[in-house]
């Protein structure tokens, strides 16, 4: 039953992604859609850590930025092709996340939040000050993404690539959660002591999911750099890290589709809210507060629960 629900969900997502461009009148809509899908992939990774692993990271924008700068520096300065540069950056970020993750994932609650926050800020500062390498606060230009003579150009092409990537990420995430690893993770989330008692190596599972989510962020960071063509250290700022966490929480923790919904809504909202101009921040804050008060479990889980309830009442 669970299996059919999973395939159904994936199918629905794919269908929406295929049909959505019918409503896009111009390239600007594609651009926003690509950004939303990119964020969604990052959030799927982060949701594994937050929603299933029960850990928190306030430094994921740092990994995102490292991926972006890794690709930028390797392709622009060292003339490496885009694909190896992207994979190398992801590998580097993975190793870094592993080395950092081992000690800091022993921390819990606020302390873990502070430690990851610190890492994010350190990465941001390094990117800002190592101007010989990164171009400093004014940023650096990045060449378009090209593999074996084929260059990714235009927002439409990026849209299809991002959509394919999202489906892949959702599929990976759903499978991971439903595997022994996923069950172990959920056990860690439920009760770390309990998980240990039944023989789950909690610390290595925590580190593993931390690394996986960091690599997701790094890969998307690389693609983002190639797509936008220009990056500054601010893509790794503390505010961005918080934004990612908010997307996960808003969409609904421990729900892969919830993360996708959260990411898409939070990417679109600022664009829609330009209509109210000076009151943008206020309306944005109001929506966030309203969601947290009325739908504390996040958008998707609350809606699904609501629908179930209504369906039950009707019978």
């Amino acid at each position: 039953m669970w299996k059919t629900a999973r395939i159904g969900g994936l199918g629905a997502l794919a269908l929406i992604l295929v049909l959505a461009p019918l409503g896009f009148p111009n390239a600007y809509f594609y651009d926003i859609a690509v950004k939303a899908l990119f964020n969604a992939v990052v959030c799927i990774g982060l949701n594994l850590l937050i929603g299933y692993g029960g850990q928190i990271s306030l430094g994921h924008a740092g990994f995102f930025a490292l991926g972006a700068y890794g690709s930028a520096i390797l392709t622009v300065t060292y003339k490496l092709p885009a694909l190896p540069a992207m994979l190398l950056s992801a590998l580097g970020v993975g190793v870094l996340a592993y080395l950092i993750g081992r000690p800091i994932l022993r921390l819990k609650g606020h302390y873990l939040a502070m430690a990851t926050l610190g890492i994010g800020i350190i990465i941001h500062i390094v990117l800002k000050t190592e101007s010989g390498l990164t171009g400093g606060p004014d940023g650096m230009g990045v060449d378009p993404f090209s593999v074996m003579g084929f260059t990714m150009m235009g927002d439409r092409m990026w849209y299809w690539a991002a959509a394919a990537l999202l489906v892949l990420a959702v599929w990976l995430s759903l499978n991971l959660i439903d595997s022994p690893v996923g069950r172990a993770l959920r056990a860690v989330h439920g009760s770390e002591v309990g998980a240990e008692v039944v023989g789950v190596d909690t610390s290595s599972y925590k580190v593993m999911v931390f690394v996986v989510s960091a690599v997701f962020a790094s890969l998307i960071g690389s693609l983002f750099a190639h797509k936008d063509g220009f990056i500054t250290p601010d893509i790794g700022s503390f505010f961005r890290s918080v934004e990612f966490v908010v997307m996960v929480v808003l969409g609904g923790m421990a729900s892969t589709f919830g993360s996708v919904v959260g990411a898409i809504i939070l990417t679109l909202l600022p664009q829609v809210l330009t209509v109210v101009e000076d009151y943008e921040a206020m309306v944005f804050g109001g929506i966030m507060m309203g969601t947290m008060i009325f739908l504390p479990k996040g958008l998707l889980p609350s809606l699904v629960a609501g629908l179930r309830k209504r369906g039950g009442a009707a019978q």
């Binding site: 983002f224 220009f230 500054t232 601010d234 893509i235 101009e277």
Partner: peptide
């Protein structure tokens, strides 16, 4: 037609695209 980019370059690029395309 005005948009506030909040000092973020990627937002500026998106708004530039919006100004031109939309």
């Amino acid at each position: 037609v005005h948009y506030d980019d909040g000092g973020a370059p990627d937002k500026a690029a998106t708004f530039a695209k919006r100004l031109i395309q939309n």
